[in-house]
Amino acid sequence: MSVNLRQQWLHGFLDVCLLCLLAERRDYGLGLTQRLVAAGFDEIPGGTLYPSLVRLEKQGLVETDWVPSATGPRRKYYDLTAAGHEAVADRIGSWHQFRDSVESLTVQAQRARAERLG
């Protein structure tokens, strides 16, 4: 699959992915990038990641906190607000609906293809 297409898709779902990661535990920017990679996505550029986090903060779904670090400069931690937790539940529901719609179409297409070939 082309990197370009994957990036476009992730772009559309980045907010959901970030909310889900933060629902698991609070994290700082670099940590989120690493966890996205661990989940199987391509590395996301900071120029895309941080504006998304700023938008979520603006929407009141995420709050931030500067935490001093023993080893180096302080880090900005992102965490869900109460509204953020509600939004996660809401978006997971929406995602499942959306995924099911796409899934049903792909299954149909696969079946049609199999019949034509078989």
Binding site: Y28, G29, L30, P45, G46, G47, Y50, W66, S69, G72, P73, R74, R75, K76
Partner: peptide, 16 residues
């Protein structure tokens, strides 16, 4: 600026 320092990266590298 702070975030880039925390990540130990040059801002132009991290953000473009």
């Amino acid at each position: 600026h702070e975030e880039a320092r925390g990540a130990g990266a040059d801002p132009s590298e991290l953000y473009g």
